[in-house]
Amino acid sequence: MPTLILEIHDLDDAIIDVITMEGGNPARAFHYLEENETPFPVKLWREGYRGRTFLGDIRRDDRGVWHIQDRQVEAEVDDA
């Protein structure tokens, strides 16, 4: 079964906590972050039998909606 890994970073990008969750649905991370009122940047990974895959940075927008942002998509938007 896949595992989700949440790396919680401080504002200087140092890892301050690592949370692991069983299951492959990345939306489970939103519930955890909401329950724990996490104010810091979070990097989301999925680990399975093929290794660890970066899914993206989790951000909350001004309306309070959680998003997983892939860095590659952000780079393409910046280039436009």
Results as ranks from 00 to 15, higher is better:
Gly51Val: 12
Ala75Leu: 08
Ala14Cys: 09
Glu7Cys: 00
Val42Gly: 03
Asp62Ser: 09
Val18Thr: 11
Phe30His: 03
Asn36Cys: 05
Lys43Ile: 07
Phe54Pro: 00
Asp57Trp: 08
Ile19Pro: 00
Arg50Leu: 15
Ile8Arg: 00
Tyr32Asn: 04
His67Val: 09
His31Phe: 13
Gly48Lys: 13
Trp45Val: 06
Tyr32Trp: 15
Ala75Lys: 08
Leu4Phe: 03
Phe30Lys: 01
Arg50Tyr: 15
Tyr49Lys: 07
Gly51Thr: 09
Thr3Arg: 11
Glu37Tyr: 10
Thr20Met: 04
Ala29Phe: 00
Ala14Arg: 15
Arg50Glu: 14
Leu44Asn: 05
Ile5Gly: 07
His31Ser: 14
Ile16Val: 14
Val77Met: 11
Glu22Ser: 05
Tyr49Leu: 11
Leu6Ile: 07
Val65Cys: 03
Gly24Ser: 13
Ile68Trp: 07
Leu4Met: 05
Glu35Pro: 00
Thr3Gln: 09
Met1Tyr: 05
His9Gly: 00
Val65Lys: 14
Asn36Trp: 09
Arg63Ile: 01
Arg60Gln: 15
Ile68Pro: 03
Arg52Asp: 10
Asp62Val: 06
Leu44His: 06
Arg50Pro: 06
Asn25Arg: 09
Val73Asn: 03
Glu76Phe: 05
Arg60Ala: 07
Ile19His: 01
Ile16Glu: 09
Trp66His: 05
Asp61Met: 12
His31Leu: 13
Asp78Arg: 12
Asp61Pro: 02
Ala80Tyr: 08
Ile19Val: 15
Phe30Met: 04
Leu4Thr: 10
Tyr32His: 15
His31Ala: 14
Ile8Asp: 00
Asp10Ser: 12
Arg71Trp: 04
Tyr49Asn: 08
Arg59Glu: 10
Asn36Thr: 10
Asp13Lys: 13
Tyr32Ser: 02
Thr53Glu: 14
Ala29Ser: 14
Ile58Gln: 00
Gly48Phe: 12
Trp45Arg: 12
Pro39Leu: 13
Asp10Ile: 05
Val18Phe: 02
Thr38Asp: 02
Pro26Ile: 04
Ala14Thr: 06
Leu4Gly: 01
Gly51Glu: 14
Glu47Cys: 08
His67Lys: 07
Val18Ile: 10
Thr38Lys: 12
Asp61Val: 06
Thr53Gly: 02
Arg52Thr: 15
Ile16Tyr: 07
Ala27Thr: 10
Pro41Met: 08
Thr38Cys: 10
Arg28Cys: 06
Asp13Met: 11
Met1Thr: 07
Ala75Ser: 10
Gly23Ala: 06
Arg46Ala: 13
Arg50His: 11
Asp78His: 01
Lys43Ala: 14
Thr38Phe: 03
Asp62Asn: 11
Leu55Gly: 02
Leu11Asp: 05
Glu76Cys: 01
Ile8Leu: 02
Gln69His: 09
Met21Ala: 07
Val65Trp: 14
Ile8Lys: 03
Met21Trp: 02
Ala80Arg: 12
Met21Thr: 02
Asp10Thr: 08
His67Gln: 10
Val42Arg: 01
Ile8Ala: 01
